[in-house]
Simulated scan of single mutants.
Amino acid sequence: MSKSEVQARSDFEFAGLSVEPSSAAASVRSAPLPLLSTGVHVHSWRYKHVKRWTDIGAALLMLSFSLAPGLVIAIAILITSKGPVFYRETRIGRGGKPFRIWKFRSMSETSQWHDVIKSTPDHTSTFHWRVHKAVRDPRITPVGAFIRRWSLDELPQLLNVLRGDMSLVGPRPVIAAEVPLYGHLQHFYLAATPGLSGLWQVSGRSNISFAGRANLDASYVRNWSLRTDFLILLRTIPAVLGKVGAR
């Protein structure tokens, strides 16, 4: 078991959770995970239709305001570091369905990661930086640090919202290897559509451990309502402006 997996396991022990990251991650990659019953409103007509149409309308409006700053960000990325403007990565969506997420690239090229990892103590793994958001990730470029601090790297995910892969509000989408870290709360994550913002983002974000994140996501799914989504969106504005937990 890797050092990052040991730390991830310790995050869950205080919450009484049990997880085997390596073996469980393999099962997620090989087949979509089942959508288990949560006994909450995420299977309702309001969640499937009213929330969806609200997402489409709001995403179109936000995209219209994002074109100018998005162009500036794209130019800044191109002239300050090698690599593409956008970064794509496979994440796990509702019911275990994988999808490609879009972001403005905030890290150095993948080809340079090996040298970066070798220069860190104990050759820290990329998975460690992903799970432990409070730890500084040396792969992040200066422009990347700025757009992450203001959550501007996530603007392209409005396209994911229009496609239906994501919602404006929900658990943040994770990679296959992170799903098992939810332990027995895993089915709550899989029951909801991943979100651009969510309870984790407005509650401290990177300042919260993965175990705390899992509990926040489960709480959101258990208590979902359109009113809850609206309140989270309202709280997102001061959270972004205050750069709360931004890394």
Rank of each mutant, 00 (worst) to 15 (best):
A25T: 12
V6I: 14
A58G: 01
L162P: 12
F65Y: 08
K133Y: 04
A214I: 10
P21D: 11
I140C: 08
R172F: 04
I92Y: 09
L67P: 00
Q201R: 09
I92H: 05
S197V: 13
P21G: 04
W150F: 14
A8H: 09
I56F: 06
L196N: 01
G93R: 10
G242E: 03
I208H: 08
V42D: 05
A192M: 10
E13T: 02
L33Y: 08
F210A: 02
V240G: 09
D55T: 06
Y47R: 11
S10T: 03
I77V: 15
D229G: 06
A31S: 13
W150L: 13
S23Q: 12
L185H: 13
V135K: 06
P173M: 05
G164K: 03
V42G: 01
T126N: 00
G164N: 07
A26F: 06
R105K: 08
G16S: 10
A177D: 15
V42A: 02
G242N: 07
D165E: 12
T236W: 12
H114P: 00
R149W: 05
S4R: 01
W102T: 00
V19F: 13
H184P: 15
R105Q: 10
L190K: 07
V169E: 08
P98D: 07
G57V: 15
F65C: 12
I140G: 06
N207Q: 14
E5Q: 15
Y87D: 07
S30P: 02
G83K: 12
V179Y: 02
G93I: 07
R91F: 04
K51C: 04
V179T: 04
W45G: 01
H132I: 04
Y87G: 02
H132G: 00
P69I: 00
R235L: 02
P21Y: 12
W224G: 03
A191P: 08
F99H: 07
P142E: 11
G95K: 09
P173K: 03
W53D: 02
Q186K: 15
L36T: 04
S197F: 14
